[in-house]
Design a protein around this nucleic acid. Structure first.
Lengths: 126, 126
DNA sequence: CGGTTGTTCAATCAAATGGTTGAACAAAGG
DNA sequence: CCTTTGTTCAACCATTTGATTGAACAACCG
C-alpha cells in the first residue's frame, strides 16, 4: 500500500478498465454511477477502481449532494512521461554512441585493423 | 496472462525494482548476474523480473555462451507515451474549453445575466 | 571426464488484486 | 417519517504476484 507515487500511477494504468475510465473522464467529469454504466461489473467494483485511481492521484472527487463527481487530474501524467523520457533518451544516446563507434571502427579497419574498443554488449563498462 | 501489450508494459513498470533494472539497462546491456548484483533478492527473483520485462517487450536477450545478455528495447515506450499524450491532450483541451466558457460567461453576465451554457461537471452531456 | 559458473524451472508461500454479495450510510423527496 | 438513490464498507473467494529454496540444465574450464 505504501508504494511510491510512480509505482501507483503505473499500477493504476496497468488495468484496461481503469485506462478506459481515464479515457471516459478525459471527456468530462462523471459520477460513480455514470462511470460504471458501460461495464458489466458491479458498481462496487468500479468504485474500487476509482479508489485506486484516486490513490494514484489520477482523479479527484468533489461532493454534489449524495453524488461524488470524479475529475481527471491529468498533471500526474507528467510523473510518468518524465521518467519514460529520461531512459528513452539515455537509451537513444547510447545507441547513437554505439553507431558512432561502429562507424569509426569501420573507417579505421582499413588503416588499423586490430583496434577494437569493445563498446558494451554484456556491459561491465568501467 | 493474455493481457494486452499496453497493460503488460504499464504493469511491468509498476514495480520499482523493474524500473531500476530498466534504468540500469539504459546505460548498457548486462547479463542476469550483472543486473542482479545490486539487489538484496535472489538471482532467481531478478530472473523473473527480467522475464516480465521481456514479456512486455521492454527487453530482449541474446545468447553469449552460457550468458544471456539483456538489451533494453526503448521503442516500446512509445506505446505508453502515445496513450498518455492522447488523454493528457484531451483533458487539457477540455480545460481550455471550460476556461473559455467561464470567460464568456463572465463577459456576458453584464449584458445577459441568465445565459448559462451549463458546461459539464458531473457530465451527462446530451 | 568432473567441477564450476550462469541461468532457469518447480514447488511453495504470503500478500495483493479484482471480483462478488450484503449491509450500511448520506442525502433527497414523497 | 419512510423510501429511494448514490456511494461506500465488509467479508469473502479465486487468481496473480513477488519472493523463497532446491534442483536442473548449459556451457565453459581444468
Amino acid at each position: 500500500m505504501t508504494a511510491d507515487a510512480l509505482s501507483k500511477v503505473f499500477s493504476a494504468l496497468a488495468d484496461p478498465t481503469r485506462r478506459d475510465i481515464v479515457a471516459r473522464l478525459a471527456v468530462s467529469d462523471a459520477t460513480v454511477n455514470e462511470v460504471s454504466a458501460p461495464y458489466a461489473v458491479s458498481v462496487q467494483a468500479v468504485s474500487k477502481h476509482l479508489k485506486v485511481l484516486e490513490d494514484a492521484g489520477l482523479i479527484s472527487r468533489s461532493r454534489d449532494a449524495q453524488r461524488r463527481p470524479c475529475h481527471l487530474e491529468a498533471e500526474v501524467f507528467d510523473l510518468m512521461t518524465t521518467w519514460i523520457e529520461r531512459y528513452q533518451r539515455e537509451a537513444e544516446e547510447r545507441y547513437e554512441r554505439l553507431d558512432a563507434v561502429l562507424a569509426k571502427l569501420d573507417t579505421d579497419s582499413s588503416t588499423h585493423p586490430t583496434d577494437q574498443p569493445s563498446n558494451d554488449r554484456t556491459g561491465a563498462a568501467s
